[in-house]
Simulated scan of single mutants.
Amino acid sequence: MNICVFCSAADLSESYTVPAREFAELIGKGGHALVWGGSDTGLMKVMADGVQENGGRLIGISVEFLAHKARAGADEMVITADLAERKAALLARADAIVVMVGGTGTLDEATEILELKKHGLNTKPVVILNTNGFYDGLKQQFQRMEEENFLPVPLTELAFFAEDGVGALAYLEEQAGVQS
């Protein structure tokens, strides 16, 4: 399975890097590929290192203005002209999407994917990996949107909130019909 991961390129504390590393190892050991923003910095690097060191493939989708931060040694590296093209390429190469901790770029990617899913233009499973409660507020906001009829489909059809990498990967493999 090609698992697209949206996450931060920032250097973060161990409270985020340790769980990310564990998730990356699960992806690699499971024989899956990481489709990611291609950066060799921050949490993106942690994910790429963990997947690659555990036998998984790396499919990077970077963007021209960040190409200087692209990871050397990825199995594939695509450089897109802009962020919109990058998001489209990430989605096109993915069988599933996981939203990990991140800033405005990650939030932009997540909301676009969920908007596409809401309209039936993306049918791939989406997991929001809620490491250390990072997305508790977002989950609460989505629940309010659902309760007040801003979502035309149930939240559970848009995204699955997982508390850890084990739960995230189990959900994705179940959705894909992969036998553990």
Results as ranks from 00 to 15, higher is better:
residue 35 V to R: 13
residue 87 K to A: 07
residue 40 D to G: 06
residue 86 R to S: 10
residue 97 I to E: 11
residue 124 K to N: 02
residue 20 A to W: 12
residue 45 K to V: 01
residue 19 P to M: 01
residue 116 L to A: 08
residue 121 L to W: 14
residue 132 N to E: 10
residue 38 G to I: 09
residue 111 T to D: 11
residue 35 V to M: 09
residue 81 A to V: 14
residue 29 K to S: 03
residue 45 K to L: 05
residue 131 T to K: 00
residue 91 L to K: 13
residue 2 N to L: 15
residue 138 L to E: 00
residue 155 L to N: 15
residue 17 T to A: 00
residue 175 Q to V: 06
residue 24 A to K: 12
residue 66 L to D: 11
residue 143 Q to T: 00
residue 160 F to G: 08
residue 38 G to S: 11
residue 70 A to P: 06
residue 58 L to R: 10
residue 155 L to E: 05
residue 62 S to I: 14
residue 4 C to I: 11
residue 70 A to T: 15
residue 78 V to G: 15
residue 172 L to M: 15
residue 58 L to K: 13
residue 166 V to F: 00
residue 136 D to R: 00
residue 91 L to A: 13
residue 161 F to D: 09
residue 160 F to P: 15
residue 99 V to H: 08
residue 145 M to D: 08
residue 106 T to F: 07
residue 9 A to S: 10
residue 113 I to Q: 04
residue 111 T to G: 04
residue 97 I to H: 07
residue 130 N to C: 12
residue 117 K to T: 10
residue 23 F to G: 14
residue 29 K to G: 03
residue 180 S to I: 14
residue 179 Q to R: 11
residue 41 T to Q: 04
residue 87 K to P: 14
residue 85 E to M: 15
residue 95 D to S: 03
residue 76 E to N: 06
residue 100 M to T: 06
residue 76 E to H: 12
residue 169 L to K: 06
residue 101 V to Q: 12
residue 8 S to D: 03
residue 58 L to C: 10
residue 9 A to I: 04
residue 39 S to G: 14
residue 81 A to I: 14
residue 126 V to N: 07
residue 34 L to F: 03
residue 142 F to Q: 01
residue 100 M to I: 05
residue 51 V to N: 08
residue 38 G to F: 09
residue 146 E to I: 02
residue 48 A to H: 13
residue 64 E to T: 12
residue 80 T to P: 05
residue 131 T to A: 01
residue 90 L to A: 11
residue 56 G to Q: 04
residue 154 P to L: 00
residue 153 V to W: 02
residue 16 Y to M: 11
residue 113 I to S: 03
residue 39 S to T: 11
residue 41 T to D: 07
residue 175 Q to F: 00
residue 6 F to P: 07
residue 115 E to T: 11
residue 126 V to S: 05
residue 39 S to P: 02
residue 25 E to D: 12
residue 56 G to V: 07
residue 5 V to L: 15
residue 48 A to G: 14
